[in-house]
Every structure is written in C-alpha cells, then in structure tokens.
C-alpha cells in the first residue's frame, strides 16, 4: 500500500474524529458534571444543522454567509438549551437514570417532529465556504482544506476546554460541582447557574458541530439518531465524563473506522463495534474514565 494512500486514510479518520469530538464532548461534559445522559444531544446537533441551512438561505445561498450562519446556529441552539434546562432538566437532576432517559428520549421525538414540520423531509445541503472549498497536495495525497480546518479546530477546542476547566476560576467551580454538589451549595455557590452554564455550553457545541458538518454532509431527518449512537460509542470508549477521554475516544473511533474498512471491506462498522465490545468487557468505565 502506498504511503500517500495510508496518509489519506489517516487524515480522513482524523477529520471524522474531530467532528465526533465536537459533538461527543458536550454529551460527555453534561454527563460528567450533571450526571444526566442527554439523549437529545444529537437532536441539538440536528437543529444546529437546520438553523445553519436556514441562515445561509437568508444571507447568501452561494455560501459566503457560512460563518455567520454557523455562529447563528450555535447561538440559537445554546438559547434553546438554556430554555430546556431551566424548564425541564432542572427537575431531573438526581432522579433515576430511567426518568432522564425517558425524558430526553421524548425530547428526541419532539425535536425530530418539530424539525420535520418546519423544514420538511427533503434532504438539504449547504455549500462549502469558498475560502475552504479547495484542496492541497500533502505527501502526494489530496487533502480538502475543510478537513484541515476541522483537524485544527478540534484540538483547539479540546485545549481551550481543558484550559478553562483546569486553569480558571469558573473551571474550579465546575469541578467542585462535579465532585460534591451539596457541599458547594452549602458554601454559598450558585450551583444552579453553573449547571445552566454547562448545559448552554454543551448545547452551543452541539449546534456548532451541526452547523460545521453541513458543508460535507446532507441534512436529513434521522441525522439526530444516527449521530447520538456514534457519540455514545465515542464516550463509552473514552470514558464517560472525561474530556480528554472523549478526545482520544474520537480519534480511536475515526482511525479504526478508516483503517477497519481496509481489513474488513464488507463490514465497515464491525471494527468499531468490536472495539467497543472489548472495551466494555475489559474496562467498562472507558479508557480515561474512573470506575463509578
């Protein structure tokens, strides 16, 4: 096998990984800090994609308004997240997982139908912003500029997130809320605001990833459910609630998928699910997680 081909495959896997990381990191954060498994996270991602498409139609259908659209979509989903957290999630904290699962699943159905009602069932598409539409030659392989942009953005967000969580006052509060909610409450900190803030941030990431995925994927009903399954696999591999775990989980998922089809061309998903099964047996709390 030519080295340029292996490099292409590697970069392709990395691009997949960075998209998954953007989505899964929000899911993992909310679980890690609030102990809520948000099944509707994929729906937030889908709404982000639709909002981005809508904004592009309004601003400039040829794609020039893409960045404004992405920001608009991410902010829109963040606002939606704030409303949903304040109105509904609030009463779920500390409840049994079953209630959370039922509620967030109901949210999946409601948001799915709402999106269908507003945007219909037709597949939609957004053009790549002209700046990133081309490709460059690296080591004799063709690399789309948009992939390179994603590969740069992923680690930047991971590092930024880590910096905020571990090196700032806000991060200290968040980590304290994760460790002992009641104690922090007793010390006079406003845990409710911290939770809302985290949920909004997680929604923002979901909306942003939904918007950023539109230049390379079609927007269709059902993309919410598809992505949530992949995001869960990533989080399971990396470890629930671990930020870096989610990052490396995504990289492993992307690369295993990318190289897996070279080994088992007829079973494209086999490698990923096999990996998840092995990790669940050997290390059920994930590669970077802690035993619960």
């Amino acid at each position: 096998m030519a080295p340029s081909f292996l490099f292409s495959q590697f970069m392709g896997g990395l691009t997949t990984a960075m998209f998954l990381f953007l989505i899964a990191s929000g899911l993992s954060l909310v679980f890690g800090i609030m102990r809520v498994i948000n099944f509707a996270h994929g729906s937030f991602y889908m709404i982000g994609a639709y909002l981005a498409w809508q904004m592009v139609q309004w601003v400039h259908p040829a794609g020039a308004g893409f960045w404004i659209a992405a920001l608009f979509a991410a902010s829109g989903v963040a606002v939606m997240g704030a409303v949903i957290e304040r109105l509904f999630f609030r009463s779920l904290y500390g409840r049994e997982e079953l209630y959370q699962l039922l509620f967030t699943y109901a949210l999946v159905l409601i948001l799915g139908d709402a999106a269908k009602f507003v945007w219909g069932t037709q597949q939609l598409s957004v053009s790549t912003p002209p700046v990133l539409a081309g490709s460059v030659q690296i080591f004799g392989s063709t690399q789309p500029l948009y992939s390179l942009f994603m590969i740069a953005l992923g680690p930047a967000i991971a590092f930024g997130g880590w910096l905020v969580l571990n090196r700032s006052g806000v991060g200290r509060m968040v980590r304290a809320a994760q460790m002992d909610r009641e104690m922090l409450d007793a010390l006079g900190a406003n845990v409710g605001t911290i939770y809302t803030g985290m949920f909004v941030f997680s929604s923002f990431l979901a909306g942003l990833s939904g918007a950023l995925v539109t230049p390379i994927q079609s927007i269709v009903p059902g993309m919410d459910v598809l992505i949530i399954v992949q995001a869960f696999i990533v989080v399971v591999i990396g470890g629930m609630g671990s930020f870096w775990g989610t990052f490396w989980g995504s990289v492993i998922y992307g690369e295993v998928l990318s190289f897996g089809i070279l080994i088992f061309p007829g079973f494209s998903l086999f490698s990923v699910f096999a990996l998840m099964a092995v990790i669940l047996i050997v290390r059920p709390w994930g590669l970077f997680g802690r035993p619960l």
Binding site: T16, V213, G222, S258
Partner: peptide, 11 residues
C-alpha cells in the same frame, strides 16, 4: 445513511 464516506472514497 453513512455520514462519512472519506475512508471509502480514499480506499
């Protein structure tokens, strides 16, 4: 419903 064809395309 594959969301990411890159690996298949390169291969």
């Amino acid at each position: 419903g594959e969301p990411d064809f890159t690996a298949f395309i390169n291969a």
